[in-house]
Amino acid sequence: MNKQEIDANQWVDRYGDLMYRYTLVRVRDQGAAEEIVQVTFLAALQATHTYAGRSSEKSWLFGILKHKILDHFREIKKNRTFDLSPDDDQDPCEYDSMGHWKKMPKDWRLDPEKSAENQELTEKLVLCLDDLSDKFRQIFVLKEIDGVSSEQICNEFNIKPTNLWVILHRTRNQLKNCLEIHWFDGKKQE
């Protein structure tokens, strides 16, 4: 059997930056991201006997990393609520008395299916994510970046389903406004 060997001496050079970037998308704090990467390597060292060689060393390490990021979110949850609270921002989109948009959404002239690879837009999205409140950012990351189900998010982070829809709607609106200002309006002037 051609079992893949683990080479812990090479881990940091081979995967350190990749894992750090992956974590930074999910956890905006650089210090916390560094710590999560460190904790992941330590956990991996202690778990080398569980490495079956079925997956690549890289995906095995990323599997551990994903758990550690989720643990980080759980740790935050201990100290404060993830559910909607009165001090959360209002809907960032405003409407007039007739229920019309005050600032109308514009035609971004992009095919939603083909837009995923748009590097420039993705970079702006990363910046816009950092403008979100911690709570909204974390919920958005779990739901839309990591694809965790609504049920799991509600159960694990004690959020009422109806409040989760409100949080996601406000977060999407904030991101949409941010992208409109920093990407779409900027492009028009070019």
């Binding site: 998308v25 035609d107 971004w108 299916e113 837009s115 995923a116």
Partner: peptide, 24 residues
Amino acid sequence: YYKEQLGIIRNLSQNLGREDFPVN
């Protein structure tokens, strides 16, 4: 347009979640 914008944000986010996505 709004519906399309949310779709674009969703697709971008999913792609951003990839392990080897060259962002940052």
